[in-house]
Design a protein around this nucleic acid. Structure first.
Lengths: 193, 193
DNA sequence: GTTGAAATTCAACTCAGTGTCTATTATAAT
DNA sequence: ATTATAATAGACACTGAGTTGAATTTCAAC
């Protein structure tokens, strides 16, 4: 829409740097990744980095934003057809998208990342799951969100780290169940194959 | 037991540095806190820092360990008397201890900290709440923990950040309720005054 | 294909923080 | 009061940051 014509040299440089970042973040925390290392990994000159980003956090932020934009586009596309009860459908769609971009999400949800991405993700989740608030008072609703969203993201992290052995439907079902009905009403063998 | 006789100069130096760390972590992420800034804040010579710690992370680790030891001592002391159903008692005790050490926990649970402390805390919580496992399969139990523990810690963070307006009993009750019975069975106005 | 514009490279520089070391001073323990 | 040791002060080489200017390469538009 805006700028179709980006010099392919720029495209290449930015792409190399983004890949280098994701690669280095498999091993190191973002705070320990130097501009030097980034450029050596990407095979570009250090001066070139500063033509595009102010520091590694800036690069990370742009990667995060890009992922979120693509995710939003994906979910909007998928969600036109059906508006199921709440979210087991939406949640599964989301997990499928994550699955298709494992490396990226693994990096952005790992301990080597900052919190910006998780925050944005929680905000997105809030929008997607915003209900006609049941009879709970506002403060309780706030605390419910603060409990459930990090919990769900934590489940997602574990699922990714351990190779996504469970199906997206199993994980979705589990998250919905535990949020709505708690531990005491979980069905047995929910995640067993 | 081991070394009662620590030179009081050392005590002072370490105390100054720990306070400086907590102070700086109110503003900056641990990764952005330099040895220089630490020493200037503490009012000690930079050489002295290296007599005690290898880097700011080392200092942080020792602060974390100290807090955990004190916490353990406190909980063991408090828990002799009664072994209530699960944990509403233990949880309240814990929150009371947190309340008595707000600044420390605020720093160690904030975004400016690393994950080590949260991990240790979750491990401790696991031990304290280990149940004769209900009828759930091992994998589901794992995922339940991975959902609930970060959720609970997240609630704790919010409670701290917003000035601990709710009582420790209210928060404990809320956490237990949402873990066991989920959102759908929360009593209204649970956190209202 | 040629050419003009723009992106990348290269080398150099200052700056700040690191980690180590040695000599000196201050102070706690007894 | 003496002795051991902790803290200080200053210097060192080293690493990465961020900037700059000139040279070079590459793209894109004609």
């Amino acid at each position: 829409m805006e700028n179709k014509k980006i010099d392919q040299r720029v495209r290449l440089t930015q792409s190399l740097l983004k890949n280098a970042l994701v690669k280095l973040m498999q091993e190191h925390h973002i705070s320990k990744i130097s501009v030097r290392a980034l450029c050596e990994t990407a095979g570009i000159n250090r001066s070139t980095f500063y033509l595009h980003y102010s520091d590694p956090y800036d690069l990370l932020a742009q990667v995060e934003q890009e992922v979120l934009e693509n995710l939003n586009r994906y979910l909007n596309h998928k969600s036109i057809s059906d508006t199921k009860p709440l979210s087991i459908q939406v949640l599964s769609n989301f997990l499928n998208y994550v699955k298709e971009n494992v490396d990226l999400f693994k990096a952005l949800l790992s301990e080597n990342c900052d919190f910006a991405f998780q925050k944005d993700l929680m905000e997105l989740a809030q929008v997607l799951s915003s209900q006609p608030n049941q009879s709970l008072d506002p403060k309780t609703i706030e605390y419910v969100k603060v409990f459930c969203l990090p919990g769900a993201i934590s489940v997602l992290q574990k699922w990714l780290q351990e190779g996504m052995k469970e199906s997206t439907e199993q994980i979705s079902e589990f998250i919905i169940q535990i949020i709505y009905f708690g531990v005491s009403n979980l069905s047995k063998d929910m995640l067993q194959n």
